[in-house]
Computed example of a mutant assay.
Amino acid sequence: MAGVLLFDEVDGKRVLDFADIPLVEPGPGEVRYCVEAFALNRADLLYLYGAHYSVAHLPSRIGFEGCGIVDAIGSGVTKFAIGDRVTSIPFNNVSSTDCNVAGEYAITPEPFLMAAPARLTSEEACSITMQYLTAYYPIVEIAKMGPGQSILVTGASSSAGLAAIQIAKSMGVMVIAQTRTGEKSAAILAAGADFVIASEKEPLAEKMLEYTGGRGVDVSYDPLSDDFIGTYMDALAYGSRVFMYGTQCGPTVTFDLVQAVRRHAIIHPYSLNNHVNDPASLERGIAWLADAINSGKFTPVIDTVFPWKRALESYEYMQENKHVGKIVVSLTK
């Protein structure tokens, strides 16, 4: 038996709790590993409450990012061997295997694993794939950003926001970061943002235009949804692109079509899943991330590490929205 986090329907509500489940063998093309640490994501909460792109089959485990030591491999696995340290890549799982990672062990299809970078602890290594790959595809592959351009990163204190800041700055892009109250502004500036706008205290669009000399930003990287895009639509550069990659304010996005047409803006609904499900795209992402981390270019920002016995508390902490960067659960501390 192995201890995991499992959720099920209880009295009409989805409840997450500790559970013991059988230790199963990996199937063809699958890798099993003893989890040393796993990272939390807001996507976990969407998955828990049935609002994520991936559909949970109850009872279900939780968790998209884990790092651990391989202890069993299925037939056909060629990239990894028993004893290797690996870290998982989030993907839309449609197989019968529960591939979520929060617990003492996890099983992941071989393509959605990468070697854990030797320079990182397991707590750090479990924190890289969701945040950096989510930002990599829109900023590097799709928008192909570079010097002379600017990006708006909303919800900038999140791990995905911090990764976008790091990636954009490494490419010579000016970064304007949005946060609500300003309490996290110092941490966002420390991550590399050129400017931080506390949108509950400052006029967002007006400040964006000021910082870009009236031109507006070339790209927006936005998880906030609902009608938030309308607060900065007039500060988009002509021909800009808005990557809507989250549903923090709900699954619906509303905006003024006339505003969007005037800015010749592309509103791009975006998910990491749609890129890692393509084998060639996935391989490019893994190669880029491995090089960026192994070279020391990027290191994930870790807010808090919880021990396994306090794993449920870690999800409560995430919902308080006080953190900057990753929340991690360690099974070795």
Rank of each mutant, 00 (worst) to 15 (best):
I82E: 14
I82H: 12
T87G: 04
T87K: 11
I89K: 09
I89F: 04
F91C: 03
F91I: 01
N92V: 01
N92L: 14
N93Q: 02
N93M: 05
V94C: 08
V94W: 11
S96F: 10
V101Y: 07
G103R: 11
E104I: 10
E104W: 09
A106Y: 02
P109Y: 07
E110T: 06
P111W: 08
F112G: 04
L113D: 03
L113H: 07
M114F: 04
A115F: 13
A116I: 00
P117F: 06
A118H: 13
E124P: 05
E124Y: 04
A125R: 05
C126A: 04
S127I: 00
T129G: 02
M130I: 05
L133Q: 04
A135F: 09
Y136G: 00
Y137V: 01
E141W: 05
K144S: 12
K144R: 15
M145S: 07
Q149F: 13
I151N: 09
G155R: 03
A156D: 00
S158Y: 13
A160R: 04
G161D: 02
A163K: 06
I165P: 06
Q166T: 01
I167S: 06
K169M: 08
G172M: 11
I176L: 14
T179A: 11
G182S: 05
E183I: 00
A186G: 02
A187W: 02
A190V: 00
G192C: 09
A193T: 02
V196G: 12
V196L: 13
I197R: 13
E200S: 15
E202C: 04
E202S: 07
E202F: 03
A205Y: 06
E206T: 14
K207L: 14
K207Q: 14
K207H: 11
